[in-house]
Simulated assay, not measured.
Amino acid sequence: MIKAAVLEAPHTPLVVRELSAPVLEPGAAWLETLYSEVCGTDVHLYHGKLSGVPYPIIPGHINVGRVVEMNGIVRDFDGNVLKAGDIVTFLDVHETCHNCWFCLVAKASTRCPQRKVYGITYGLKDGILGGWSEKIYLKPGVKTMKLPKGVKPEAFIGGGCGLATAYHAIEQAQIKLGDTVVIQGSGPVGLNAAILAQLVGALKVIVVGGPAMRLELASEFGADHVVNIDITNENDRLAQVRELTNGRGADVVIEASGAPAAIKEGMLMVRDAGAYVVAGQYTDNGDVTLNPHLELNKKHLTVKGTWGIDLSHFYRSLKVMEKYHSRFAWEKFITRHYSLYETNQALADVEDRRVMKAVITPNR
């Protein structure tokens, strides 16, 4: 039997259940969960704000664990044969078809209609396919990766979903050497975007967010300036960004806040002929009103959205961590560890911004 925290339905407390472990299919493996993150997506799941979620589910879509059993030869994405005891992670996205119009013509596999995600669109009826459980069933074909030498499991889960999501946003932003970049949001996505912006050549990184605890961490990880939304209004924030950019605005602004009101404010922070990338609007939190002439067309603004991640974002962000783990201690993102019996508290702490990163440790 395997213990797992189960979200039966929106707005209901998670409960720990004992589940029967199925026999492994050929090519499948069991992973003993070391760490599973709690991210904003899990808060959205609790509030029922994501469509197509097959409740009840086991949350936990970004995970790291120890291989304990396999049926046949199982290889990681680099072709290495896995063995019991290996510390691995895996891409939460599975069953992307690579055969539909979106996969083959649009080259946008994150919009593939067959795409399924561990801990989000796999339900309990599909198996033990979420990280808030003592073990995770790795289905045949899941893209698994051994943690690189030197990358601690705590560092990987500290970067977690936010690192790969930020990688996608940075890719869309096409930051140039010497750019000034504003990041709206100081959660895991925002701080990872601040790190990656530095690595691709931004000479000035400004993080707009809160609370103060998160902004202190942003400064520690290299942000040149921080602006606290808890003690400023929109006009104050715009004035500060203008002052730091010779009155022009930033070359690139990346939204990673999840707040719809941030969109209009962020567009005003971008210089004329600059770029605005939206990464934080993962759920429907409402509308915003824009003046398309003044705030978009006359500014000659490039606006891009991002949705989810694919293997390239996950794989490359792990390689970034391998290269730079001694410079950026991603494990510092972790504020607190929680047991399976504390998952409701973990969700509440993430929602109320009491923590930077909450991590579930099912086997402690």
Results as ranks from 00 to 15, higher is better:
213 M>R: 12
122 Y>R: 03
78 D>S: 13
168 H>I: 05
268 L>M: 12
345 Q>E: 15
306 T>S: 15
211 P>V: 09
209 G>C: 07
218 A>K: 03
336 R>N: 02
153 P>W: 13
286 G>P: 14
95 E>R: 12
269 M>E: 06
181 V>A: 02
30 W>F: 11
297 N>A: 13
134 E>D: 10
360 I>R: 06
10 P>H: 03
6 V>I: 13
212 A>R: 11
86 D>R: 11
41 T>V: 00
107 K>V: 06
1 M>A: 08
110 T>Y: 06
340 L>Q: 11
217 L>S: 04
166 A>W: 02
311 L>Q: 11
275 A>V: 12
297 N>V: 14
306 T>G: 07
306 T>F: 07
356 M>R: 01
306 T>K: 07
35 Y>M: 04
40 G>D: 02
70 M>S: 09
268 L>I: 03
305 G>E: 10
229 I>Q: 01
234 E>L: 10
108 A>I: 07
225 H>G: 05
166 A>Y: 03
242 R>F: 10
143 K>R: 12
11 H>F: 13
178 G>P: 03
246 N>R: 11
69 E>Y: 05
191 L>W: 08
331 E>D: 14
91 L>F: 12
303 V>Y: 12
120 I>T: 02
252 V>D: 05
95 E>V: 09
15 V>I: 13
305 G>A: 12
22 P>H: 06
26 P>K: 15
288 V>H: 10
327 R>Y: 13
213 M>N: 07
56 P>E: 07
296 L>D: 04
259 A>P: 04
339 S>N: 10
125 K>N: 06
234 E>F: 06
324 Y>C: 09
190 G>A: 08
279 A>S: 14
87 I>V: 15
117 V>G: 01
98 H>T: 08
39 C>L: 02
257 S>W: 00
274 G>S: 09
187 G>R: 00
329 A>P: 15
142 V>F: 03
57 I>Y: 08
353 R>C: 01
361 T>L: 07
280 G>E: 03
205 V>T: 09
273 A>I: 06
56 P>L: 06
115 R>H: 08
273 A>S: 14
300 H>R: 15
96 T>Q: 11
1 M>T: 06
234 E>K: 12
350 V>D: 00
51 S>F: 05
168 H>K: 11
201 G>F: 09
180 T>I: 07
103 C>D: 14
39 C>E: 00
269 M>K: 06
109 S>I: 12
312 S>K: 08
260 P>Y: 02
304 K>R: 15
10 P>F: 01
255 E>W: 04
267 M>N: 04
328 F>S: 04
209 G>F: 12
186 S>K: 05
162 G>D: 01
291 N>I: 04
183 I>Q: 00
225 H>P: 05
173 A>H: 13
36 S>E: 03
343 T>A: 14
102 F>Y: 12
236 D>L: 10
343 T>G: 10
48 G>T: 05
245 T>D: 07
64 V>F: 15
63 N>T: 14
